[in-house]
Design a protein around this nucleic acid. Structure first.
Lengths: 339, 339
DNA sequence: CTGAAAGCGCTTACAG
DNA sequence: CTGAAAGCGCTTACAG
């Protein structure tokens, strides 16, 4: 059974394809009421569904965008995807999700495939090693929004957390709790990724501003599967930190597991603060102090900017949108309470 | 700057469009070595990228599938999406993710839009209220795979957990721990969704088989935001359950928060088992006993079957693939240990 | 107010 | 071994 197309409908209704097309696109201006009805009837009778691929080819617009996440395993990524999907749904736009799996090579493939599929724009968590590719997209005014990490040389619109503020909130709170020996644990890749970089920078800056000693051993950047080993070593030093900031949700879990296995009591022995909200924050013993990213707002903003670029054309290239984190103080960081 | 198309390449290379097309599709059989090289050079010189939309129109194949999840907020959904995306990536297929947000109306819209975009097939967590739509897709041999829930009248291939086994594992373990007063808490929607239905059924069956008393109050099916209130009431009864099975990850968190707020000790006062693995299982105090679904395998299988249907045509319609759950016994269910 | 024609960028029998 | 032509299913100036 051949699928019915616009010609079939035209024949059934006894009008031309043009007229059917006008009807489909709701350009009723000059359409006779009766023509309209015959077309409508024919469409229903034949159960006709327009082929958007054909339309896309002609209109050079697919109403589909691509999202390339660096690593889909992070909760942050899936939340951003949710927010983007949610906003796009309202605008009748589809989202193709691709996972770069932290591989610049895969990332590049995804960019090419998605462009070949003519997506109208791209939201990307850049891995950091395809700078020229992104720069050339930017140069040709292709709609493109970066998220979580800056684009090439900071070019292009990007949606970022105010990382300095996040670290500031965490350290300030720990200081208020009289915790001065503070460590930070982040997942690290070879690349100088924005969040990790900015967070460690901010850590050093704010410690310095508060005249606190920066022990280089207290800064851990390592792959997830090595994190526990490294962190345990730190915990078992003669002078371990009294407080620790987890750079993201996955690091937090590693830290919590370490503390459990090493019988380190939170917050008495170690005050813990996680960046990124986690589902179990209020269920945990102790409840977990977190510095939440407004993931939902960030994803929505990325989608909004992209759709605007698609509809109105790409204009300036240098907007960085910083989102303000929000600390929720719970038990895990309350060292004074532990006394 | 107009994008270069196949005609530009043909002109540059001094051959016909057909020949360029042959080259692009790697049909080198009858192609002269020199022709091949000229075409190659022309493509590189012009930085030509083929337009897959045009190809799709002609070939009636988009190399794109759609996934409609009932509710993207469940960890289970995002893990399934990850597995599907992962498998499809190996097969050069793109995935469009749509969230039905538990709304049959949205679900139906998604089905229509995705079909209009000519996706080659669909993987769906059916909400349960679009039976006729699915039946007609099945009737026209459209590639379609259900996941987590059965299709209309059980028709169509579906990927499910062996829910009875999951409940069996949980209850048997609790019985081994001498816990006999067992409750079950699930999120409920109006619809008779497969997992909830099968799990509550299995609960009743297995309790009966073990000659355990089934207290109807111990079966809680309610929306997430009402769960805590309902569960707390149960906890404060004169005869509360001694053990509880959380129907999924979100329910588990609600239960854990309740226990914390009501100072109910796990496992001494209440043994807890969660269905679905959770990120914090090994970090929690106590560690959480879980009955894990093999989400990754399930997602992969769904993608595999769908791609097979796409490539080889749709054959039989009645395969239900049951995946075996796996219990990991940790502290939260060890009532005897609490003694 | 409606229709004929051209075209979007490819692929694919078919002819030579 | 290569090319001319038709066609995938739409949309869109333009003519009338």
């Amino acid at each position: 059974m051949k699928k019915t197309n616009i010609a079939d409908v035209a024949e059934e209704a006894g009008v031309s394809k043009s007229t059917v097309s006008q009807y489909l696109n709701k350009r009723y201006h000059f359409m006779g009421e009766d023509t309209k009805n015959t077309v409508k009837a024919a469409i229903e009778k034949l159960n006709y569904k327009p082929n958007y691929i054909a339309r896309s080819l002609k209109q050079k617009k697919t109403s589909t965008i691509g999202v390339i996440v660096a690593n889909i395993l992070h909760n942050f990524s899936t939340q951003i995807i949710q927010a983007i999907e949610n906003y796009c749904q309202l605008h009748q736009i589809h989202v193709i999700v691709s996972n770069a799996d932290d591989s610049p090579h895969k990332e590049k493939n995804h960019i090419e495939m998605l462009r070949a599929k003519q997506v109208d724009g791209l939201i990307v968590f850049p891995t950091g090693e395809n700078q020229e590719v992104y720069q050339s997209l930017l140069d040709e005014k292709y709609p493109l929004v970066f998220i979580d990490r800056l684009g090439p040389n900071g070019n292009g619109p990007s949606i970022l957390l105010d990382n300095e503020k996040a670290i500031h909130l965490a350290i300030q709170h720990l200081i208020d709790e009289q915790v001065n020996d503070i460590g930070i644990v982040t997942t690290s890749l070879k690349q100088q990724l924005t969040p990790r970089f900015e967070r460690v920078e901010a850590y050093q800056k704010i410690m310095r501003e508060n005249n606190l000693y920066i022990n280089e051993d207290f800064i851990i950047s390592t792959e997830l599967h090595k994190m526990k080993g490294t962190f345990k070593k730190l915990l078992n030093k003669s002078n371990p930190p009294r407080g620790v900031i987890a750079g993201n949700d996955l690091s937090l879990i590693q830290i919590l597991e370490c503390c459990r296995e090493e019988h380190v009591k939170i917050p008495q022995d170690l005050a813990v603060i996680g960046i990124d909200e986690v589902s179990f924050a209020k269920a945990f013993h102790p409840t977990i102090t977190t510095v939440a990213q407004p993931t939902f707002d960030m994803g929505k903003k990325a989608a909004k900017i992209l759709i605007q670029e698609i509809n109105e054309g790409v204009k300036k290239h240098d907007n960085v949108y910083r989102f303000t984190p929000d600390i929720t103080i719970r038990e895990s960081s309350k060292w004074l309470l532990g006394k």
